[in-house]
Every structure is written in structure tokens, then in C-alpha cells.
Design a protein around this nucleic acid. Structure first.
Ligand code: ZN
Ligand code: ZN
Ligand code: ZN
Ligand code: ZN
Lengths: 130, 130
DNA sequence: TTACATAATGTTATATTATAACAATTTAAT
DNA sequence: ATTAAATTGTTATAATATAACATTATGTAA
């Protein structure tokens, strides 16, 4: 139920880098890492990032201005994201909880407004750092 | 249960501005608006913003890099924030739902990890824009 | 009230994150 | 082949945020 997008050259290079990274990557760190592959300018990075976010292959961690690959089976839920963030080591994990996503998808505010999209970031200490 | 912080001069100036604003304010817009009051440098603004966020008088809307005053009775819940954001007119509202905050405060991930803090941003269309 | 610690301020410079504008090229559908 | 849409390349610049250091104000304890 989920169109396959063939990534372009720049998109593929940048996705591969993020996907291999154990931690979220920042745009200029990405840029530095792909310069040897011919991607020379910030805009080339940001354009690829925008597209990858749009199709759900990666997510932006808003509180960190950083990007991680989706590990939720190429996110059918690019519009419903939840992360846990360790405030000590900065480890970020994508949360996939059926309960949570159902609860949030159905959440209505006082005016009965429903939302088409959400992003949730939890903060705390990871196992290691506890 | 909630210490009163006496705001300093810069903090008060900047809080008042944000508090009066009908929409989230960005740091450099704040700077522009308080220059006539003697606050001349970005750092003066960011320092006040940091403190105001810390004590829960304002919140940062991460996806917008903007700040709004807390309307949740000077937020006992600075560590548990939820907002609705209209993707057309950019209106932002702080959500205060007992059900939601209870659900999220008690949420545990697969590893049984509980979190000390969260930020949730919902996106959709506000009443006007629907 | 003096001494000390802590917090806030002022200032300059700089780092980091992100987009504007425009030309050229590639891709995919008629 | 024609055309529209998407992607790329490139330079310049805008927007967001912090480093470093000197100074002043505020609170607390002897
Ligand atoms: Zn995902
Ligand atoms: Zn950790
Ligand atoms: Zn609040
Ligand atoms: Zn609206």
C-alpha cells in the first residue's frame, strides 16, 4: 500500500550514509561525508533530505536538527513518528508501539479537531546511561 | 508546588513580548522588537529564552524554531508539552488534556523504559482553515 | 557588612543550520 | 520528438544559535 520510490543518485548516497549511521546525522556532517562522492553543496544535501523525509525513508529529529533512517519497515507512518532520546548519550530510537500510535491517531482535542500528522519526542536516560 | 521565579529585566521584557504575541515568535523577531528597550545582541535574547524555557514560562515549538508563552497555568508540566499546529496559517495552540498527559506520562516502551519528559506536536488544519 | 559564590548582563566574533535564485541536465510521459 | 516535471549544479546569502571573555548585579553566610 506504499509506493516504491526509486532513489536518485544523490538521494541514494545520502540515504545509505544515514542508514549506516548508528546515530542521527546532521546535515553538514552528511555534507562532509559525501563530498568525496561529488556532493559539494549544502543545497544538494538539503534537497535530498527533504525528499527522503517526504517519502518516509528518513525522519528528522526536530529537537536535534538531525536525521535518522526509518526503521519501521520504510515507515507507512511517516506522518506519525515517535522517538526516544537519551539526554546523556544522545542515542535516538524510533518507537513503534501499536498502542501509542492508535492512541495518538485517534486523539481529538477539545474542539474535536483531529490531526493528520504528529511527531513525538520522549526524553530520558537510555539503558546504558541509567 | 511550584517555585515562583522573579524574572530579571531582560527576561521580563522578552516574556512580556512573547506573552502578548498571538503567534509563536522567532528569536530574531524578538530581538528586533526589543532593541528599543536596550537588548541589542542575539545572545541576550537566547539567554533569556533559555531561562524562560527552563522555568516553564515559555515553550519552544521545535518544528518551527519559535517560542510561545505557556498557557497551562505557568506550566507545572514544562516537561510534558503538546501542541497543535495548523499547517496553513501556522496557528499554534498548547494542548492541555488530562487524558493525553496521563497516557504519555505513563507510557513505557518495549524495554520498560519510562521517560522524564516529552514534546508532542500535532499537525493539521485549524477551524478557520478547514 | 564584608566576603564569597552564583547568576545575569554586555559585547564581539563566529559557528551552525537552511534557503533564494538561476542555469543546466535528466527523467518520464505523451 | 515534444514537453513537463523532477533533479542537479552552483554561488550567494539568510536565519538560527553558541563561544569566549569582561563586567555587573544578586543572594547567602560568616
Ligand atoms: Zn519511521
Ligand atoms: Zn544514553
Ligand atoms: Zn505549558
Ligand atoms: Zn489555520
Amino acid at each position: 500500500m506504499h509506493k516504491e520510490h526509486t532513489l536518485t543518485k544523490n538521494q541514494q548516497i545520502i540515504f545509505d550514509l544515514i542508514d549506516k549511521s548508528p546515530e542521527p546525522m546532521k546535515a553538514y556532517s552528511i555534507l562532509f561525508n559525501v563530498q568525496k562522492k561529488g556532493i559539494k553543496a549544502p543545497l544538494q544535501v538539503y534537497r535530498a533530505l527533504d525528499k527522503l523525509v517526504e517519502i518516509g525513508k528518513i525522519h528528522k529529529i526536530e529537537s536535534r536538527n538531525a536525521f535518522i533512517a526509518c526503521h519501521n519497515s520504510s515507515c507507512q507512518v511517516a506522518n506519525a513518528t515517535a522517538f526516544s532520546i537519551c539526554e546523556v548519550c544522545e542515542k535516538v530510537t524510533e518507537i513503534s508501539s501499536v498502542g501509542l500510535s492508535k492512541y495518538l491517531a485517534n486523539f481529538k482535542d477539545k474542539d474535536g479537531m483531529k490531526y493528520s500528522k504528529y511527531n513525538l519526542e520522549f526524553f530520558g536516560l537510555c539503558k546504558k546511561c541509567r
